[in-house]
Structures are given as C-alpha cells and as structure tokens.
Design a binder for these strands. Sequence first.
DNA 1: GGCAAAGTAGACAGACTTGTCTATTTTATG
DNA 2: CATAAAATAGACAAGTCTGTCTACTTTGCC
Lengths: 184, 184
Amino acid sequence: MRESAVKDRILGTASRLFYDQGYHVTGINQIIEEADIARASLYNHFPSKTDLLLAYLDQTHKEWFMALDAYLFPLAEPRDKILALFDYRIQRQRRLKYKGCHFNKITAETCEDEQVFRRVKMHKERFRQYIRDLVAQTQHHSSLDDEMLTDALFLLLEGGIAVGAMFRSSDDAEKAKLIAEFFL
Amino acid sequence: MRESAVKDRILGTASRLFYDQGYHVTGINQIIEEADIARASLYNHFPSKTDLLLAYLDQTHKEWFMALDAYLFPLAEPRDKILALFDYRIQRQRRLKYKGCHFNKITAETCEDEQVFRRVKMHKERFRQYIRDLVAQTQHHSSLDDEMLTDALFLLLEGGIAVGAMFRSSDDAEKAKLIAEFFL
DNA sequence: GGCAAAGTAGACAGACTTGTCTATTTTATG
DNA sequence: CATAAAATAGACAAGTCTGTCTACTTTGCC
C-alpha cells in the first residue's frame, strides 16, 4: 500500500509553512489545523518536529533535482543547459514569491543541528557537481579554467537567489545570468 | 549624558544572540539573564522585542560600514579596495564562525515585517552603491561595463558569504575573490 | 462479517513566551 | 544632602509551545 494520504498532507503542509513563515514560528498546532488532520496522526508519522524538518529537507532536495532534470531535459547543448539553470531558479523563485533558497533559509534558522547541516551541505555540493558536469561538456571561451568557471556560475546563482530574497525580486538573478553569458 | 551602559549591554547581548542563535529562538528571558539586567530595564529602553530587533539592525548596519571604511582606509588604489572588500568579509565571517550575513539571516527568519525588510534593502543597496563607486574609480580591463561589473562583484560577494554559511567555511568567498581578480 | 490498522477529537502536563506591574534600591546630579 | 531618574527583583497574566495519553470512530483487507 502506498504512503498514506494523511502523511503526504502533513508533510506538504509543514513544508509550505516551514518555507513561507519559517521553521521556528510554525507550530505543530498550525500544521495540524491547516493540514486538517489529528494531532496523534502527526506524531504517529513523525515522532517529533525535528523529524518533520528532516523529512521536509529530504523531500525538497529530491523534488528540486527531479524538477531540474525535467527542466533541462529538452535542451541539447550543455551551454543552453547551463543558462537554463538560471531560468529554472528564477521561475521557481517567482512561483515561491522570492523567499529564497530553502536550504539557505533553514541554515539561517537552525545553526547547530548536525543532521540539518549535513543535508544542506549535501544539497549544495550536489548542485555544484551538477554545474561542474555541465561545464566539463562545454567548450567555453573563458579565461577561467573549468573549476573556477564552475565556482563562478555557482556563486552567481547562489548570490542572485540570496539577494533576490532580500529584495523580493528576480532582478539580480537575471543579472547573474547576463554575467554568466559572458563566460560561456 | 551618554547612553546608559545598561542599554548598551542589552543591545549588545541581544545582537549577539539574535545573530548566533536566531531571532525567534532568542527569548527576552535569555537576553535579561545574559545581559544581567532587570526585566523592566529592558522594556524601559525597548518597548517591545521588535524594537530591539530594529535597533539591532540599525546598529549592525552602522557598525558594518564604519568597520569597512576603517578597513579600506589605508589602501590607496581603488582596485585594492575592491579586493579588500572580499578580505573584509572573509575576516568578519571567520570571526563570526561563518554564520553568514546578518541581513540575509534576518530575511530568512522574518518574512513579513516591512520595517525589517526596508532596513535589509537599504543596507544591501548601500553596499552595492559602495562597490559601484569603487568600480567607477577603477580602469579595469573587463569586457563588462561598469554596471555589470558592479553586479558581478556584488553577487560574487553575497554568494560567497551565503554559501560559506551553508558550509561553515570561507573557501567559497576566497574563490569569489580569485574570480573577481580576473575582472579587474 | 470480523478484526486490525489508521485516523480523530480533545484533554492534559510542563515548560516556555511576551509584556505589565508593584515595590524597593541604587545612582546621578543640582 | 536632597530629589529625581534609573535600575532592580520578582510576581503575574494570558497565551503559546511540544509531546503524551485516552477513548472513540473510520477504514481497508482477508
């Protein structure tokens, strides 16, 4: 039997609230209410609020890369794929009302939890590797070597999204894309 | 008469805790305890926790630019000043244990407060302007125009610090500096 | 139909939260 | 020295938080 619909609704609601409002200001009571499920159901599926947080991070990580793969799939040229990385994140931010990167947000909120920290690092390192693989397939006319180009693209992307959150805008991510085009 | 030492101790303790642990997990009780002052003293100087937050942001903004000015003051060449921007932030992050930008952190925590939002935007826009002024004084051999170079530097800096917070490291900010040197 | 699993409703404990208030003591200054 | 301002200790209200528990109802499956 598939995962219960109740569990999905709990995690979905919690994820939305954790991202939109923040983890610490989101209470179990609010999750219960908005997901319209019983208190015991939540604690049956997730023994603690921390477990819910970790499930949120795992789920977000998984969904994030699946959506990215789907977004880049139609494109043939590695260079186009790299530029589409910017579009992917810009569109996503537009949909999410410019609240920034999920993993950046949770890092800013929960400083000490090692399990959270590990997931954040894993997600970002994997994204950097994703870029590295695309760069390796591209013949760019940049004076930077592949590794530095990878870092430049990664930092422009992360910077663009982070600044975008502070300005509630995609302007900086768009600028980041324009700058990236100069390298490629 | 100068501002009371008690007020300074309240704001100093609150600032440290807001940054280190996060705003929402820091309670008034903890601030009182660690600052070693009376409850009524806190509410006498700061009518609410939100006022304390705004004072924290104002104070941080002010101190941030003063320390930056002091850091760049000995340098003559605009190009050196630009590169020193990276060093300034790297050293600061090392001292702060790589918890990232104060304004990025508070943005991630408090989404809706317009007064917070305004201060964050103001701080970042002023920093961008700071870079823009330095770029205008530099004769760089970049194919990017002044405005794009400004954005590139700004985004590399912000990206480097944000990523550094997620990895608890200054590696990415160091890389950002190396990339920036190619432009200049 | 029967039976176990899953879900529900809601009370409850114990601790924490922000902010107010009173009463007292310390400090600074004319 | 006197007087006003500032700081203190601590009780208190009213609400929130997470997590546990009991009792009941619905659901799915053999």
